[in-house]
Design a protein around this nucleic acid. Structure first.
Length: 823
RNA sequence: GCCGAAGUGGUGGAAUUGGUAGACACGCACGUUUGAGGGGCGUGUGGGGCAACCCAUGGGGGUUCGAGUCCCCCCUUCGGCACCA
């Protein structure tokens, strides 16, 4: 063994060994328990960043640990390779997106990820921009089209003016594009959608069946899906044959309706105002509201405004005439685009009514029965008793909700219904670098799916990237012009591509059988490997990718492709890497380049630090000095091994006969602690701390010359620290394992077990308290009875001093911990 | 506003069921090795006090022999959702 720890040489050597030996290749093996460990695959931007280092270090510890515990571990890696940056690079540098992407992948794989020593089965690499992958996006699209789960509709969609494309609702954050931060506008376009709303119920229900997910992610998903239970009620529109259907969650306040509000886009607006004196004012109001950017319009601080249409609706419960207003706050795409307004019991309606002098009518009275519409300063939204509500007077409003709903259904003037906040997933993108949507438009047959045998619809290579006008696909005549698969007539291809989130919605299934050519994945392979036992990635995907992947898993189940309901059994959302109080970013200039750290210290140090500095789910504050600390620790272990390796080579490690030896005890305590910390929510930071304690103890133990008879204990300590370090600093551990005289890889060596009998010391420190304050510490032999311990405490000089002769009222003895004397 | 998470030394962070607050590491100080620097090794390190002791886990109450941990109120920070009828 070398005297000096040369990380670079060691790491390259072991990386080659693992690759040559196929150490991490896996295949289905029904005889062994499987474990599927997955980290979110990266976008091949060109370089990995510290967030990747952290993410993949965490995942690799899990994978290596489970492997040592005897699991058949699937640990794959791939590339989320479609997306805008490639296309932007093409515009800027004139390099084709495909070339740019594939070169980035080669660099990131060979020069970066492989240098981290991650235990991937690289034979399963999946790259989403290759035909062999995206053809299955198209295939799935067609299956979904057949089932009505993919459909095209004209609607208002989110438009990012800088990315020049449509965005899904999930991709708009605070009115801004999730990728570039531009303010999102809205546009009316005909676009393809996936009917995720068909799964709203199940997606919500299963939030309660994912105990391995962080609560905050589930909460975000529940919020996003947004289930709301209520009643739809039809109001007749006076003087027309038409009716206005509204949705409400408060049927108990139906008798308090004093006006109606409808969305500016509501299809009935024009009919309502036709020929009325109000028509011009309403039209100008509608136009003004609709011109606003979506972000501005939906900003809550936006003043609530409205205009009276001149028309009246009739409340079906009390036959009262109420005015119909157009309100700028009513959303066309939620509920029915029309609402009943009850100023007395809804704050927004209250403010609106005050502004426009609309009457307020109390229909829910508080306990004191003193609500007075003329004196009210705000709406009363709490529970109470129904009043002014005809036959329902005197009913509690909670009960009233159900009774009025029953009444409405019985009279057939409405029905109970559920509304969702979740909208269908808009998947059309007006960009080149994505999966072409496999649809052909024929002048006589309309939209025709590309026949399965014609897949894939391949992205043409001969296109221009100008950054101007339409997407390169739309401008490519050779791509666009085709013939109808049905009638053979002249036809054109759909030139939109799919949202890249489609690619990442099922890649975890592809890893199960990445070379499969007849289907997206092999059913049996998926049956063996799925679900993903542990998924690890950033919190930023809490609703985006993680919701889409759940949806796709259910769709694919219903297509009969596999049997699972949910893709990810356990989810770990790791925190961000922070430096100087902010997320690392180029614009802030606080980026630390992983290559620099790996070159200077080695991958094992980079891994160790990123695991030690904080628990995985919390943010990690980068510290250059902290990295030094991790490096120093590895040096200390190395030096210790170097000092003893020749003396302990080939020797058997100490076993039961060494019980009672303090280093042997610490060794076994450390095995216990590290194992428990990994098993208990991956607390790698405390696991590493425990290993450091063991090493400190070994230094202390070997400070004096070690006699030969103690060498087996030292050997046990060295062997243990090597095995415990193996998942964390794998190259380093392999090297130590060799130095101990082994010839096999440590990667498949069994994780150490601890000897329970070796854990206990002969003596314990017992804290002695008087009235709850620590006054002394006693070292007592283990196994004393309570009265014996009590006697020892009462006899203690310090205790006597503090009890000052008084008789103890009570003495509490906690075995192995403390004695509290109460006076 | 609603929902969620979190507030512990100079710093990152530890503290199974309520039972020695501050493990481990960084930083700092001193010592040692060295011609020096760097590095290594060792010792110390929450605050106050010569000490006995006292004070300390965002703040204030409470329960308990005993509270970072449990209960109530409040403050702050971060994240998500937010005109959803």
């Amino acid at each position: 063994m070398e005297e000096r720890y040369d990380a670079k040489a060691i790491e390259l050597r072991w990386q080659r060994y693992w690759s040559d030996e196929g150490t991490f290749k896996v295949a289905e093996d029904p005889g062994r328990p499987k474990y599927y460990c997955l980290e979110m695959f990266p976008y091949p931007s060109g370089r990995i960043h510290m967030g990747h280092v952290r993410n993949y270090s965490i995942g690799d510890v899990v994978a290596r640990y489970k492997r040592m515990r005897g699991f058949n571990v699937l640990h794959p890696m791939g590339w989320d390779a479609f997306g805008l940056p490639a296309e932007n690079a093409a515009i800027k540098h004139g390099i084709h997106p495909r070339q740019w992407t594939l070169e980035n992948i080669d660099f990131m794989r060979d020069k970066q990820l492989k240098r981290m020593g991650l235990s991937y089965d690289w034979d399963r690499e999946v790259t989403t921009c290759l035909e062999e992958y995206y053809r299955w996006n198209q295939w799935i699209f067609l299956k979904m089209y057949e089932k009505g789960l993919a459909y095209k509709k004209r609607s208002y969609v989110n438009w990012c003016p800088s990315c020049n494309t449509v965005l899904a609702n999930e991709q708009v954050e605070n009115g801004q594009c999730w990728r570039c931060g531009s303010v999102v506008t809205h546009k009316e376009l005909e676009q393809w959608f996936f009917r995720i709303t068909a799964y709203a119920d199940e997606l919500l229900e299963y939030c309660d069946k994912l105990p391995g997910w962080p609560e905050r992610v589930l909460t975000m998903q529940r919020n996003w899906i947004g289930r709301s239970v209520g009643v739809e009620v039809d109001f007749a529109l006076e003087g027309t044959g038409e009716k206005l259907t509204i949705f409400t969650t408060r049927p108990d306040t139906l008798y308090g309706v004093t006006f109606m509000s409808i969305a500016p886009e509501h299809p009935l607006v024009e009919m309502l105002i036709q020929g009325r004196p109000e028509a011009a004012a309403v039209r100008s109001f509608v136009q003004r509201v609709m011109r606003l950017e979506k972000a501005v319009r939906t900003d809550e601080s936006q003043e609530k405004e409205g205009v009276f249409t001149g028309a009246y609706a009739v409340n079906p419960l009390n036959n009262e005439k109420v005015p119909v207003w157009v309100g700028n706050f009513v959303l066309m795409d939620y509920g029915t685009g029309a609402i009943m307004s009850v100023p007395a019991h809804d704050q927004r309606d209250f403010e609106f009514a005050k502004k426009y002098n609309i009457p307020v009518r109390v229909v829910i009275q508080n306990g004191k029965n003193n609500l007075d519409p003329t004196a009210m300063k705000e709406a009363y939204v709490a529970e109470g008793t129904m009043v002014n509500s005809g036959p329902f007077d005197g009913t509690s409003n909670v009960e009233g909700k159900e009774k009025v709903a029953d009444h409405v259904e019985k009279r057939k003037i409405g029905k109970r219904t559920v509304n969702w906040r979740l909208r269908d997933w808009g998947v059309s993108r007006q960009r080149y670098w994505g999966t072409p949507i496999p649809i052909i438009y024929c002048e006589s047959c309309g939209a025709v799916p590309v026949p399965e045998q014609d897949l894939p619809v391949v992205l043409p290579a001969d296109v221009q990237f100008t950054g101007k006008g339409m997407s390169p696909l739309a401008e490519s005549a050779s791509f666009r012009e085709t013939s109808c698969p049905k009638c053979g007539g002249k036809a054109r291809r759909e030139t939109d591509t799919m949202d890249t989130f489609v690619d990442s919605s099922w890649y975890f299934l592809r890893y199960c059988s990445p070379k499969e050519t007849k289907a997206p994945f092999d059913k049996n392979a998926a049956a063996y490997w799925m679900d993903v036992d542990q998924y690890i990635g950033g919190i930023e995907h809490a609703v985006l990718h993680l919701l889409y992947a759940r949806f796709f898993t259910k769709v694919m189940r219903d297509l009969g492709l596999h049997g699972g309901d949910e893709p990810f059994r356990n989810l770990l959302t790791q925190g961000m890497v922070i430096k100087d109080g902010a997320k690392m970013s180029k614009s802030k200039g606080n980026v630390v380049d992983p290559d620099f750290i790996i070159n200077k210290y080695g991958a094992d140090t980079a891994r160790l630090f990123s695991l030690f500095a904080s628990p995985p789910e919390k943010d990690l504050e980068w510290s250059d000095q902290g990295v030094d600390g991790a490096y120093r620790f590895l040096h200390r272990v190395w030096a210790l091994m170097h000092r003893f390796s020749s003396r302990v080579q080939g020797m058997r490690a100490a076993a039961a006969e060494a019980r009672g030896d303090r280093l042997f005890r610490k060794t076994h305590q450390t095995v216990k602690k590290v194992t428990e910390d990994i098993e208990r929510q991956f607390q790698f930071n405390t696991a590493i701390a425990a290993m450091m304690e063991l090493v400190n103890e070994m230094y202390d133990y070997t400070a004096q010359p070690v006699p030969d008879e103690k060498l087996p204990v030292v050997r046990a300590g060295l062997e243990t620290i090597t095995l415990l370090l193996a998942p964390f600093a794998p190259h380093f551990a392999e090297e130590l394992w060799r130095a101990l005289g082994n010839r096999t890889s440590v990667a498949h060596t069994a994780w150490p077990a601890f000897d329970p009998a070796a854990l206990a010391a002969a003596e314990v420190t017992v804290v002695v308290q008087v009235n709850g304050k620590v006054r002394n510490k006693l070292t007592l032999p283990i196994g004393m009875s309570d009265p014996e311990i009590e006697a020892a405490a009462l006899g203690d000089a310090k205790v006597r001093e503090h009890t000052a002769g008084k008789t103890p009222k009570k003495v509490i003895v906690v075995q192995g911990r403390l004695v509290n004397v109460v006076v």
